[in-house]
Computed example of a mutant assay.
Amino acid sequence: MSVIELSDVSRAFTVTSRAGLRRTRREVRAVDGMSFTVEPGEVMGYIGPNGAGKSTTIKMLTGILVPSGGSIRVAGVDPSRNRLKLAKRIGVVFGQRTTLWWDLPLKDSFAVLQKMYGVPLARHKENLATFVELLDLGDLLDVPVRQLSLGQRMRGDIAAALLHDPEIVYLDEPTIGLDVISKARLREFLAEINAARRTTIILTTHDLDDIEALCTRVMVIDHGHQIFDGTLDGLKSSQSAPRTLVVDLATSLPPIAVEGATVTKVDGPRQHLTFPPTTSAAPLLAQIAANYPLVDLSVAEPTIESVITQLYAPASS
Rank of each mutant, 00 (worst) to 15 (best):
L273G: 05
S252T: 12
I256M: 03
L253R: 05
V247M: 03
K265C: 02
T251Y: 11
H272K: 09
G260D: 11
V258F: 09
H272Q: 14
P255C: 06
T244K: 12
D267K: 01
T251A: 14
L249N: 12
T279I: 01
L253S: 04
L253W: 05
T264K: 02
A257Y: 03
G260N: 12
V263H: 11
R270D: 02
V258E: 04
P269M: 07
T279N: 05
R243D: 15
P269D: 06
T262Q: 14
D248L: 03
R243V: 12
R243E: 15
F275N: 07
S280P: 00
D248T: 13
T274R: 01
P277I: 10
P276Q: 13
F275C: 03
H272N: 08
R270P: 00
P255H: 05
T264Y: 15
E259M: 13
A257N: 11
L273I: 06
S280W: 00
V247C: 07
A257S: 14
A250L: 14
V266P: 01
G268V: 03
T278C: 04
T264E: 15
P269N: 09
T279L: 12
T251L: 12
L245H: 02
I256Y: 13
L249Q: 10
V263Q: 13
L273T: 05
Q271K: 04
H272G: 03
V246Q: 06
V266S: 12
A250D: 15
R270Q: 09
A261D: 08
R243L: 10
P276H: 14
L245Q: 08
P277L: 04
I256H: 10
S252G: 06
S252Q: 10
F275A: 05
I256R: 02
T244E: 15
T279M: 07
I256W: 09
A281K: 00
S252V: 03
P255N: 07
T278S: 12
H272E: 14
L273Y: 13
P269K: 07
P277W: 07
A281F: 04
T278R: 05
V246W: 05
T262H: 13
T274G: 12
R243P: 08
T262Y: 08
A282T: 00
P254Q: 04
A281H: 02
Q271S: 06
D267G: 00
L245I: 03
P276T: 14
L245K: 01
